[in-house]
Structures are given as structure tokens and as C-alpha cells.
Amino acid sequence: MASIMPPIPRFFFLYIEPSLCFFGGAFQPVLNPHSITTLLPAPLAGRHTTDPNPTPLETMLALQSATLMFMIAMVTVIVMVFAKDRAVVRGYVVASAVTDLPHWASFAYVLGWEGLRQWRTWEAPLWMQLLVPVFTLMFKLGYLSGAFGEDRVPEKKGRKEL
């Protein structure tokens, strides 16, 4: 549970990480699916139209992505609040860190070499989608390496010997 973590990672995993997932990944696409489909310029996104409105398929995929981000936010909170085993907490942080890699790989795949070379033309929302996970990955690796301090070992409840 998060209570075994040092104070800074505890705050990050209980509040910041779920908030980033919820507000940036779940709440924003529900309010405005257009915000997700316009991350990439139309030609780089494979859209053969200059119409800025998302297609029904793009809207559905944005909302499905929002559902997954909502689930990730909730799982993060549940693991941090209720998991009592240090291995479960650390395992979750490892799994969460590993998922940052396909996040970037998917952008690289969609953008292709041409889109990656056009990095100077990227808008702020695309930069946020790429750089926020850099920050969170560094934080996760910092926690796992002990940079914020060691986990506390919970006291075992049981009979005390005199």
C-alpha cells in the first residue's frame, strides 16, 4: 500500500499519477474527442481530408482510449490504497513504467520518419502527450531505484513475545 512508500512517491502515486490519467487521458476526450484526433496534423494521421472534425471511428477510438485511461487511474488508486504487499506495489509501478514505452512507440509508428523529422511543427498537446510520460517514467524509475528513500516495512501483527 502507499503507506509503505516514502512521502514523495506516496503523494505522486496517490494523487498526481491518477490525476494525470484521469484529467488528461479520460476526462478531456470525453468532453472533447476532437482534442485527441487533432494531436496529429491530418496528413500525418492518415486522414485524407482537411476537415478538422473527427470521424465517427476516431471519436469511438478516442472514447475507448478515455475508458482505458479511466481504468488505469482507478487501478492506480486501488492498488495504492488497498495493496498490503510491497511486491504488489512495486510490481504495479514496474508494469506502469513498462507501459510508457509502447506509448512512445505508438507515436513513432504513427508519425513515421517524416513526422518525427517535423518535430518543430508539433503543437503543445502532442508535446504534452510525449513529455508527460517522460516525467512519470523518470519518477517511477526513481522510486524503484530508491532515489526517494527506502520503503517502510509494515509491522506484522501478531503475538508479541515478552
Rank of each mutant, 00 (worst) to 15 (best):
5 M>Q: 07
6 P>W: 03
6 P>K: 05
8 I>S: 08
10 R>L: 04
10 R>N: 04
10 R>H: 09
10 R>K: 14
11 F>Y: 07
13 F>P: 02
15 Y>D: 00
17 E>R: 03
22 F>C: 01
22 F>L: 12
23 F>P: 07
23 F>T: 04
31 L>F: 10
32 N>D: 12
33 P>V: 04
33 P>A: 05
36 I>W: 01
36 I>N: 03
40 L>D: 00
42 A>F: 02
44 L>C: 06
46 G>M: 15
47 R>H: 08
50 T>P: 01
53 N>I: 02
53 N>F: 05
53 N>T: 12
58 E>A: 04
60 M>Q: 13
63 L>C: 03
70 F>G: 12
70 F>K: 00
71 M>K: 03
72 I>D: 00
73 A>S: 15
75 V>Q: 08
78 I>M: 08
78 I>S: 09
78 I>R: 12
81 V>D: 13
83 A>M: 07
83 A>V: 05
86 R>W: 03
88 V>F: 01
88 V>I: 14
92 Y>D: 00
93 V>E: 04
101 L>A: 10
103 H>I: 08
104 W>V: 14
105 A>W: 14
107 F>L: 09
107 F>W: 15
107 F>H: 14
108 A>E: 06
111 L>G: 03
112 G>H: 06
114 E>D: 14
120 R>Y: 10
121 T>W: 08
122 W>F: 11
122 W>D: 04
123 E>P: 03
125 P>N: 13
126 L>I: 04
127 W>N: 05
127 W>F: 13
134 V>L: 14
136 T>Y: 11
136 T>H: 08
141 L>S: 07
146 G>M: 02
150 E>N: 15
151 D>W: 02
152 R>C: 08
157 K>T: 11
